[in-house]
């Protein structure tokens, strides 16, 4: 029965060859550090799932943001878990992304023919930082408010365009409701959209070219 259904589907979708290309592809003999990319992807999926769940209750408005976060943490069943996974998952995400990058540098995996994989990876690193920065403001507590005050002030130090950058980030001179709303928009729409596109290219390249092997002494 199951084989019949999967045959029927495969004839129409060709999913088996897709499955084999993605999951049953040949890889060189490598060590555990080569799983850091997959670990990062796993953390990203965790962030996406828990993030989507958080938007059910979270309200990005100065008079409700903090209270809605408190409501999630203390009133909603498993809310503490969902928020906790998103909170600590964010740190894990940064950590894993950087470790993954260190591994790529250490084994020289960025070299020909994988330059584009590396470039998209650099883009992904910046996006992950963007996620961290924008997400930090959303709980709208003292730490969030002052961290973003300082963070946007740091951007202001940029020569010539610093003031413009600060104004664009904050949506004005001060850190206000506009800032919170746009950080939310960036956090849940702009960045995820870019992230998905770049991950798509990144993974396409990983599968198309195949992963690098551990360099030998002769190379």
């Amino acid at each position: 029965m199951v084989t019949q259904i999967s045959e029927w589907l495969d004839e129409r979708l060709g999913w088996r060859s897709v499955w084999e290309t993605i999951f049953l592809r040949k890889v060189p003999k490598v060590n555990w550090s080569y799983t850091l990319g997959s670990a990062t992807l796993f953390a990203a999926v965790n962030q996406a799932v828990t993030g989507i769940l958080l938007t059910i209750y979270y309200v990005p408005s100065p008079d409700q943001a903090y209270a809605s976060v408190q409501y999630i943490t203390t009133q909603v069943p498993a809310g503490w878990l969902i928020r906790g996974l998103h909170h600590y998952g964010a740190s894990a995400m940064i950590l894993l992304t950087v470790l993954h990058m260190v591994r790529v540098i250490f084994y020289g995996s960025y070299k020909y023919p994988r330059e584009m994989t590396w470039f998209t990876g650099v883009g992904l690193l910046l996006i992950v930082f963007g996620f961290g920065f924008s997400g930090y403001l959303l709980p709208w507590d003292q730490k969030a408010f002052w961290a973003t005050t300082v963070g946007t002030r740091i951007a202001e130090v940029t020569p010539l365009v610093g003031d413009a950058i600060l104004r664009i980030m904050r949506g004005g001179k001060e850190l206000t409701a506009i800032t919170l709303a746009r950080f939310f928009g960036v956090h849940v729409w702009f960045l995820p959209a870019t992230l998905i596109i770049l991950i798509g290219i990144h993974l396409y390249l990983v599968i198309r070219i195949g992963i690098s092997s551990v360099p030998t002494r002769e190379e």
Binding site: N46, V49, L53, Q75, P77, A78, I82
Partner: peptide, 13 residues
């Protein structure tokens, strides 16, 4: 582990 708490979370209120 993700799915079950997610359901409780959504239908809680």
């Amino acid at each position: 582990g993700m799915g079950l708490p997610a359901i409780a979370y959504i239908i809680g209120p």
